[in-house]
């Protein structure tokens, strides 16, 4: 799994969906799209829509003056999920984790971040740390017209 930070939170996602990790870059705003869609970036000639997880999780409301599409800090995790290729804007990427199956606890998706989070991952020597497991497929489903 890939461990990354979204604001102050630790999150994780399945490494299998991750295509690459690129530095953040200015995105072209998509008028009318939800607030948590940052915009379009040019990834070596291909246009990729970037979703801002910080806004998506509500940890970081966009502050006044920071327009959608503006240069954000952090990195972009490019993923393939739900038949789409898109970017997830996060604060920083921490490390790649190997966790046992029993270290993942499912949670009711209704309760967490509107379905974007599907579980808790326990890790560390004594499983003392936790991260939110992101449901990338579900995020894709919510973000795009399927």
């Amino acid at each position: 799994m890939l461990l990354f930070g979204v604001g102050a939170r630790l999150c994780a996602c399945d490494l299998a969906v991750v295509r690459e990790i690129v530095p953040s870059r200015p995105a072209t705003r998509l008028p009318g799209a939800p607030e948590w869609v940052r915009g379009l970036i040019n990834l070596r000639g291909t246009l990729v829509t970037v979703i801002d997880l910080r806004v998506r999780f509500g940890t970081d409301r966009r502050t006044d003056g920071e327009e959608q599409g503006a240069m954000p800090s952090g990195v972009i995790v490019v993923v393939n999920a739900g038949g789409k290729s898109f970017g997830i804007g996060v604060s920083e990427v921490k490390e790649v984790l190997t966790v046992a199956e029993d270290a993942v606890e499912s949670i009711d998706p209704e309760r967490a971040a509107g379905g974007a989070v599907c579980g808790l991952v326990y890790f560390g020597a004594t499983r003392e740390s936790t991260a939110l497991l992101c449901d990338v497929e579900e995020i894709a489903k919510q973000a795009f017209v399927v």
Partner: peptide, 21 residues
């Protein structure tokens, strides 16, 4: 891939000479 609720008034996008979409 157009996100949900996006305005239907764009027929696509292009990449400009400076690399920005």
């Amino acid at each position: 891939d157009a996100p949900r609720d996006g305005l239907a008034l764009f027929s696509g996008a292009t990449i400009l000479a400076d690399g920005a979409p």
